[in-house]
Simulated assay, not measured.
Amino acid sequence: MTAVSDAPPWTRRVGVFDLETTGVDVETDRIVSAHVGLLDGDGREIVSKTWLVDPGVDIPEGATAIHGITTEHARRNGRPSVLAVTEIIAALRALLTQGVPVVAYNASYDFSLLAHEARRCGIVPLLDPQPIIDPLVIDKAYDRYRPGKRTLAVVAALYAVTLDAAHDASADAVAAGRIAQALARQFALPERLTDLHTRQIGWARSQAASLTEYFIRVGRLDPEERLDGSWPVRSPRVQGDSQSR
């Protein structure tokens, strides 16, 4: 890899967003915790808000094993979903309205699940949020043939970004933002956020098509099945993708 000398101006103020949930189905699973923040050009978080949410359903033991939040803790200390989702969407809209890009790792998962939660709560969802930056999509586009996993922890280590508490919404969100800034220093990413957002739409579609072909070849999908490559919000009736969570 050859590093570029100057990062685009948008790296000086970067919003970050992450969810921890009851599972990986974007349509039916619920938010358990969320984080929205703002990083400066050095990756320091200068504004932050974290939500603990009572999802209104039991949190499966498998999900608790990942993020550490039990049903009892969420019910006792969490905000009701309708209030939390309202506040999360308002925080994201405030950043996007100012033209601040929001970074989310595997963005189509978080934004799709948030959209379904909004509908359940009777809240207007973020159907076409932009500008969004997805380090997973960008890393795949610029280092396509690198072998191995592309989880947040693996990619953070690759770009020398510290991730001390994986699957904590705050830690994951901040790490994703710093990875985005590292990618901008490493590669010649578009300077205009509109260009970067549009390119990610195409990259995500191509990556989903390539992964579909691979899954059909190894028997994980039937020949008539297709992974949804829409980004940053997936089409309805598409399962969550846990491979990069």
Results as ranks from 00 to 15, higher is better:
A118M: 07
Q130F: 07
D139S: 10
T151L: 09
H167M: 04
L92Y: 03
Q130V: 13
G122T: 13
I123T: 13
L92E: 13
V155K: 01
S81D: 06
A165E: 12
I133Y: 02
P135F: 04
R93D: 15
R76E: 15
A153E: 11
I138C: 04
D143V: 09
A156Y: 00
I69C: 01
R146S: 06
D139Y: 14
A115S: 11
R79G: 05
V100Y: 08
T71D: 06
L126C: 09
G68L: 04
V82W: 11
V103A: 03
L127T: 15
D110A: 08
T70K: 06
L158I: 11
L114N: 03
A104P: 02
V154F: 11
P147R: 15
V161H: 00
S108N: 14
S112H: 01
N106R: 04
G68K: 05
P125H: 08
G68I: 01
V137D: 03
T86C: 02
A90C: 12
A91E: 11
L92D: 05
L113M: 13
L163E: 04
V85F: 03
H73E: 09
N77W: 15
Q98A: 14
S81A: 15
E87F: 07
I88C: 15
R75A: 13
L152G: 10
A118I: 07
V154P: 02
D128R: 13
F111I: 02
A91R: 14
V137Q: 03
K140M: 10
Q130E: 12
P135T: 07
V154K: 05
V154W: 00
A165T: 09
V102E: 00
H116L: 04
G148T: 07
E117Q: 14
D110P: 01
L83C: 09
C121Y: 01
E117T: 06
L113Y: 02
A90D: 10
L127A: 13
C121H: 06
R93T: 10
A91D: 15
D110N: 05
Y145K: 10
I88E: 09
A107Q: 07
A156V: 10
E87P: 09
R75T: 14
R93S: 13
A107P: 04
A118K: 03
